[in-house]
Amino acid sequence: MPRPYALALLALLALPGCFSNNRHQGQRLYAQHCASCHGDQGQGLARLIPPLAGSDYLATHRAELPCLLRHGQNEVIVVNGVGYHNIMPGNKALSPAQLTNLLNYVESHWGNEAAPRTISDVQAQLDKCP
């Protein structure tokens, strides 16, 4: 193999190491920050913690979700016809990119079928948080 081709081949083999692998970041963030309350499969906990699986709340409050994750909530919310009144802590440490990956994971699993979000969409929604 001529030398230029060998160098090009080595460069191509090294290329994946130049990029981070965020493909499964949403799943990892969910496991780290959400699963202990909402369950491994988003099933929630009886009438204490609302389910994320098949949740009508996710669809009807889509624009509010980045703020809810960032700042938490302590008001009554209704999910699939059931009222829940427990405090949900927010997480100010998660970046807009992390929030985007987390929301894209939750909104595309367990029967949820929302369109994918972009980081700029999430950032714009965060800019409108009260």
Rank of each mutant, 00 (worst) to 15 (best):
L9Q: 02
L9P: 07
A11G: 11
L12Q: 00
L13F: 13
L13M: 15
L15D: 11
L15W: 12
P16M: 12
P16E: 08
P16T: 08
G17N: 10
C18R: 15
C18F: 15
F19R: 09
F19V: 11
N21L: 10
H24R: 12
G26E: 10
Q27E: 15
L29E: 07
Q32C: 03
Q32L: 08
Q32R: 06
H33I: 05
H33N: 13
C34R: 13
C34V: 09
A35L: 03
S36E: 06
G39M: 08
D40W: 07
Q41P: 00
Q41W: 10
Q41D: 10
G42C: 06
G42E: 12
G44Y: 11
G44P: 11
G44I: 08
L45S: 06
R47T: 14
R47L: 15
R47P: 01
L48M: 07
L48S: 13
I49P: 10
I49R: 09
P50D: 09
P50M: 13
P50T: 05
L52P: 00
A53H: 01
A53K: 11
Y57F: 10
L58I: 14
A59Y: 05
A59W: 05
T60E: 05
H61I: 06
R62V: 13
R62F: 02
A63E: 13
E64I: 00
L65S: 04
P66C: 05
P66L: 02
C67E: 11
L68P: 02
L68E: 06
L69F: 07
L69R: 02
G72H: 05
Q73L: 12
Q73W: 11
N74L: 03
E75I: 03
V76R: 15
V76F: 08
V76H: 01
V79T: 05
N80R: 14
G81K: 08
G81Y: 13
V82P: 01
V82D: 04
Y84S: 07
I87L: 14
I87A: 12
M88Y: 07
P89F: 07
S95W: 07
S95H: 09
P96I: 01
A97Y: 04
A97M: 00
L99D: 00
L99M: 01
L99G: 01
T100F: 06
N101C: 03
N101D: 13
L102H: 01
L103I: 13
V106T: 13
H109W: 00
G111A: 08
N112E: 02
E113T: 15
E113D: 15
E113C: 05
A114W: 00
A114V: 01
A114Q: 12
A115Y: 04
P116V: 02
S120G: 01
D121E: 14
Q123E: 09
Q125L: 09
Q125R: 15
L126V: 05
D127G: 05
D127T: 05
K128T: 15
K128G: 10
K128D: 01
